[in-house]
Simulated assay, not measured.
Amino acid sequence: MKRIGTQHWSAINSLIPPTSELVVMPKPHDQPAVIVADLDGDNHQEIACVYRNKGEMYVMVAKQDEDRWHPIGNFKGQGYTVSELVAAPIVNAHMNSLLIGWQIGGVWSNIDILQWSANGFMHMLHQETRTSRGEVEDMSGVNGMDGYAELALWLHDSGKAFQVEVYRWDAGNLVIADDVYPYYFQKMVAYYESVLEESDLAKYWYYLGDAQRKAGMHAQAFQSIEQALQFPNPYPSREALLRWKKELDGANRKS
């Protein structure tokens, strides 16, 4: 991806309907939903933008041939704004996919993945895939990075608590990528440690323990669950935490 220049803005303004407006993404800092990236694998940059026209959402991809820009994809979207617009090699290590988060509620978006093919762009996800926050990167597994981008999808629970799962594309679907847990959930450990500095709640101790367990930090996870059990109303329940504590105790004895 590269910087959006004057020629790109001119192309967008000439191609989207005159009755439309570019969507402004609320995060990270109120920026237009526009990226410039190679989306068809030809080593030339395309423009992707999301616009709103007569109350409906659309995503357009435009390509440059010599000095002329023309659309190579224009699709109707969902919701009322976008939470994510990312180009990354999700489906093919040698070609970027376009990931869009169509915001449908205050803390919910539906993920859409567009992939270039011989027949033009294809929607890769055929089932609803929701997220409250997403991170897309080539994450390091046991054999390092493999050139494919994984997706970490955060589903809001309450407050600052999220259920997080990491996925990769495999055989036509998003599947759980548990081999990158040690890498990604170290980030979640740091996240919940910072949350707990502000709010000492049973729910956050549970989620910290879950992140530590997935990061391979079993002794620390055991301590976090013990801490969660100190509260009068443990989350998600005292019975669940005690079962989990027993499993972690067994894992710690084996290691």
Results as ranks from 00 to 15, higher is better:
Y235R: 03
Q186Y: 05
A87D: 08
A33I: 05
R238D: 06
H70M: 12
F162D: 07
T131A: 15
D178Y: 10
M95S: 13
P232L: 10
I176L: 13
G172W: 11
S255Q: 14
G55E: 05
A149E: 01
A240F: 07
A228Q: 00
G159Q: 10
P182Q: 00
D112K: 09
A48E: 06
S140V: 11
H44V: 11
K245G: 00
V164G: 08
V59S: 12
E165Y: 01
G120S: 04
W169Q: 08
Y80C: 04
G105Y: 12
G77A: 06
V189H: 02
A33H: 03
W244G: 00
Q230N: 11
N143E: 13
H44S: 12
D200P: 04
D112N: 14
A152D: 05
T129G: 03
N74S: 13
G101C: 10
L98Y: 04
Y192K: 00
M57H: 07
G250H: 11
V180G: 03
A33K: 04
Y58P: 02
G209S: 11
K2Y: 03
A171S: 15
D112I: 07
A152N: 03
R243F: 00
Y235L: 10
A149I: 02
N173M: 11
W169P: 05
N110R: 12
E66T: 13
H156T: 07
R52W: 00
V50E: 06
K76E: 15
V82D: 01
N252A: 11
V189R: 05
M25Y: 01
V175S: 06
Y235T: 11
